[in-house]
Computed example of a mutant assay.
Amino acid sequence: MIKATQLETKDIVNLKDGAKLGPVKDLHIDLETGRVVALVLQGSRRYFGLVRSGKDMVIPWELVKKFGIDTVLVDLEPMDRSYYEVK
C-alpha cells in the first residue's frame, strides 16, 4: 500500500519514451466508490520555478502501470519534446 503523500516524492516516468513527467499534484477520487480515478501532475514551471507555464496533466488510473520505491511508471503515448522542456 502507498500513501497519497508518498506520491509527491516519486518520479513519474513514461514507459514509452522514458520521460520524467513531473510531480504528483493531486488525485481524482470517485466519491461513490472511493477509488482513485486519475493522477494529476503539476504543469511545468519557468522563471526559476516560480511561474507555471503549462497545464496540469491528468493521467487516468488505467495508465498507471507500476509503483516502485522511487518511481511510478505510466504508459502514455509520447508527446512533443517541447512539452517536457522547462523554459
Rank of each mutant, 00 (worst) to 15 (best):
L21D: 02
K16N: 15
W61F: 11
V86F: 10
T9K: 15
D80V: 06
I29S: 02
K66M: 07
T9V: 07
E77T: 14
D26K: 13
D80H: 11
K10F: 05
T71M: 02
L39F: 15
P23Y: 07
V58K: 09
I2A: 06
F48D: 11
P78C: 08
P78F: 06
G49C: 06
S53M: 12
V64H: 01
V37L: 09
A4R: 12
I2D: 06
A19E: 15
V40F: 00
V36Y: 03
L73Q: 09
E32A: 14
K66A: 09
T33G: 00
E77K: 14
W61G: 01
G43Y: 05
G18P: 03
A38M: 02
Y84Q: 05
S44C: 07
K55Q: 13
L41Y: 05
I12C: 03
A38C: 00
V40Y: 03
D80A: 10
D56P: 04
V40I: 15
F67P: 02
G49Q: 07
V37K: 14
K10T: 01
V51A: 11
D56T: 07
F67V: 12
A19T: 05
L41H: 01
F48A: 11
E85G: 04
Y83D: 01
H28I: 13
V36T: 14
D11M: 09
K25H: 07
D70F: 14
V37M: 09
L31Q: 10
G22R: 02
D26N: 15
R35T: 10
K16L: 06
K16W: 00
G43M: 06
A38P: 00
L7N: 05
L39C: 06
G34W: 07
Y83G: 01
Q42C: 09
N14A: 06
K16A: 15
V24L: 05
L7C: 07
A38N: 07
P60Y: 06
G34V: 07
M57Y: 03
A4V: 12
V74E: 00
E62T: 13
K16S: 15
E85T: 11
L73F: 13
T33D: 03
V24W: 05
L15K: 15
S44A: 12
D17G: 08
R52P: 09
F67H: 04
E85Y: 11
F67K: 04
E77M: 11
L63K: 15
R46H: 10
